[in-house]
Amino acid sequence: MQTHTQHHRRQAQPSFPFEILDTPTSTQPQSLYPTKDSLSEALAYLEGQLPITHSNELYPLLMIYHNTLLKTLGISETRQ
C-alpha cells in the first residue's frame, strides 16, 4: 500500500518522453555510462535488455548508445 508521500512523489515526476525531450542535446559523453566497441554491439546490448518494463531502464541504455555513437563519430573520447 502506498503512503500519501509516495503517491505524491510519483505524481511529481515528469512523464517519460518529456523528461528526455526536455534535456538539452549534448555532444559530450555521459561518463556515468559505458561505451561499447561498435554501434552494432551497443544495439545488441540494448536488444538484450528487452523487454524494458520501466522508463528509468531506458535512459541508461540510450546513454550507452549515445556514448558509442560519439566514439564512432570520433567526436570525443568516452570511457570503456
Rank of each mutant, 00 (worst) to 15 (best):
residue 70 L to V: 03
residue 54 H to S: 15
residue 14 P to S: 13
residue 79 R to K: 14
residue 30 Q to V: 02
residue 59 Y to I: 07
residue 73 L to Q: 13
residue 58 L to E: 00
residue 32 L to Y: 05
residue 56 N to E: 11
residue 78 T to Q: 04
residue 19 E to L: 10
residue 77 E to L: 07
residue 76 S to A: 15
residue 9 R to I: 09
residue 21 L to E: 08
residue 36 K to R: 15
residue 14 P to W: 06
residue 67 N to D: 01
residue 46 L to K: 05
residue 40 S to A: 14
residue 5 T to I: 13
residue 7 H to V: 02
residue 71 K to G: 00
residue 69 L to A: 08
residue 34 P to F: 04
residue 10 R to A: 15
residue 32 L to V: 00
residue 3 T to I: 08
residue 2 Q to F: 11
residue 41 E to V: 01
residue 63 M to K: 04
residue 12 A to Y: 07
residue 34 P to V: 04
residue 39 L to W: 01
residue 55 S to P: 10
residue 60 P to I: 06
residue 4 H to R: 13
residue 80 Q to N: 14
residue 28 Q to F: 09
residue 35 T to S: 14
residue 63 M to I: 02
residue 14 P to Y: 01
residue 72 T to D: 12
residue 8 H to S: 13
residue 28 Q to G: 05
residue 33 Y to P: 00
residue 59 Y to E: 05
residue 44 A to Q: 07
residue 40 S to E: 15
residue 16 F to P: 08
residue 33 Y to A: 03
residue 17 P to R: 06
residue 27 T to L: 13
residue 66 H to L: 05
residue 38 S to A: 13
residue 43 L to C: 08
residue 34 P to Y: 03
residue 7 H to F: 12
residue 25 T to V: 14
residue 51 P to H: 10
residue 76 S to K: 12
residue 9 R to E: 13
residue 33 Y to K: 03
residue 24 P to E: 12
